[in-house]
Write a protein that binds this DNA or RNA. Sequence first.
DNA 1: ATTAGCACTCTCGCCGGTAGAGTGCTAATT
DNA 2: AATTAGCACTCTACCGGCGAGAGTGCTAAT
Lengths: 343, 343
Amino acid sequence: MLTERQSRILEFVISEYVENATPVGSQFIGDKYRLRASPATIRHEMAELEEHGYLSHPHTSSGRVPTDHGYRFFVETLMREEQLPWEAQQTIRHQFHQVEGGEEAWAHLAASVLARAVENAAVVTPPRTDACRIKHLELVSLHDATTLLVLVLDQGRLKQQIITLDDARAQPELSAAAERLNKQLSGRTLAELGRSDLETSPLERQVIDAVEEIMGEVDEGTLDEAYLEGIRHVLSQPEFSSSDRVLGLLDLVDERNLIRAIPLRALAGDGVTVIIGAENPRLAAANDAMRACSVIIGRYGAPGVASGAVAVLGPTRMRYSRTISTVRYLANVMSELLDERYE
Amino acid sequence: MLTERQSRILEFVISEYVENATPVGSQFIGDKYRLRASPATIRHEMAELEEHGYLSHPHTSSGRVPTDHGYRFFVETLMREEQLPWEAQQTIRHQFHQVEGGEEAWAHLAASVLARAVENAAVVTPPRTDACRIKHLELVSLHDATTLLVLVLDQGRLKQQIITLDDARAQPELSAAAERLNKQLSGRTLAELGRSDLETSPLERQVIDAVEEIMGEVDEGTLDEAYLEGIRHVLSQPEFSSSDRVLGLLDLVDERNLIRAIPLRALAGDGVTVIIGAENPRLAAANDAMRACSVIIGRYGAPGVASGAVAVLGPTRMRYSRTISTVRYLANVMSELLDERYE
DNA sequence: ATTAGCACTCTCGCCGGTAGAGTGCTAATT
DNA sequence: AATTAGCACTCTACCGGCGAGAGTGCTAAT
């Protein structure tokens, strides 16, 4: 494995490269970090690190650059996760008290806060449960047979759908139907809905169909609802100065592909996951520009009750320590707030 | 004013520049458009056009480029608005039948369709009325004193807010309160809410406060709800190849500034409005990159009942005829659909 | 194991030269 | 009076060469 000195050199190269985005040379490292070794020695060590795949060479005679492998080693063993400064913690907490809105607004806010905190792009999904339950439904006549179905699910999720009934119905009749359905359906999940032992009128049947459809979508947990903020930060980094790379990343953003590409669901239940560069084949295949990016993902909420994900997307050349602790902190804050709000 | 030939030359320069994004010279124009005139003559005319401010010169010896003024003249007098090809019309109509969702989803879809159709960025706001009316409200107990207020407004708009009551209340009590409030408030606007001649319990008072807050926001017509799609198209144009300009535009996108900067509200009631380059001082001041952009805005819906705006943002070097007719067509389609859905 | 020394490589910025596109002006033509 | 041919001029874009600088890899000495 790596000697003490090699580790230190690797660490220095990474922290230097992260800061300046330029390949770093042996002399510079020796000077700046007061290693008791001449440039030649450091070169020697660097060559060794390169053999092990931790560093690489843009071309014959320029300084070293970390590889994905190098970053991985850094994250795994070299880096000590910093405590998020108290001030930063306060800033984040403070911003959450600004808005009292639905969960969508909440997730949106979180994405925005996170993007600002880590100066990279951030993705946050609103909290979702695995199998949601009906809490309440309501029918409101809009116009002729056009009717608004309002569905309140547990954890305060709210869905609406406009349905067109077979015949026009007056509001009192709709209200009566809604009341009957509420008695029968309240507390049920989608699965329990299916085997409907309940006798139904055609009107009620139609409403139930719509309810099933909505709950199917919700259970499926469409990631299209995720919020993305702050791509601007990523694109302003020097590695994306060439315009084709910019366009590559924008493709992801525009078509919501980015969000689909990030395998939020397939994560270890807790803790923070780090995906560096081309490590995840799905991401790398999705887009060329992604190969120069890392993704840090954390989960919040309680699995099985209500949970969501927060993620940061940035260049591989990223301040991992800072980013990881911010993601972890934000996930914790969101879990707390979620707890406060519902049982 | 301009002679016949000058007009033609101006038209040619614009159409050529729009297509190729390179300054266009006298010889080229003469060759391609079979003008019965030598390059020298055309140069002469171009010099005249430049004096009048319709064309300009990147530097001493390169072809001409249209100015904002030139585009304006083109849009005003030279251009004949093309009928949108039947095929394009069908494509647009077709896509609208895909989704039956809330108005948010609808506006989002429209933005996406429009962006694709004109290959530029598109902004669409969901339909809003000037003064909305309460149709129905509902209270759902979530946890202790934490309660979800669901508010159905006219035209099927739906708002939710989580409120924390002074004391915990059971669901039956909440339902009863909701029913009482429905009887009293149904059909009222925000203004009519204020002078509440109605006697209220503390619980009801609290709910009414929340309702007022929500309706205030809705009436205000927060443009944050607008949907933006397709910036990618704009940024891939050659005029945005330099990365600082890219960042400039992204600033707008990211912070929703773009949407705020576009003065959707301050428009002539009907028809399509065209803002070219720096013509609108607010836009030009908002962002440097905007000076190279034009905005085409159309309204849909019936003013006073429910209306919204659709807009396209693209480089000043844009296919105005095509864009304008697409915006107009889309606005008409959306008006129709809105009519169908509600009275 | 470390290091000094040295040759080597590659980038980057700079200079100058050239080809090409296009203009503006003037004087001749219609 | 409008048009045009002719010509000098200007500016850009591109290419090759050159030197400085940074950094490496290797070898031989410590």
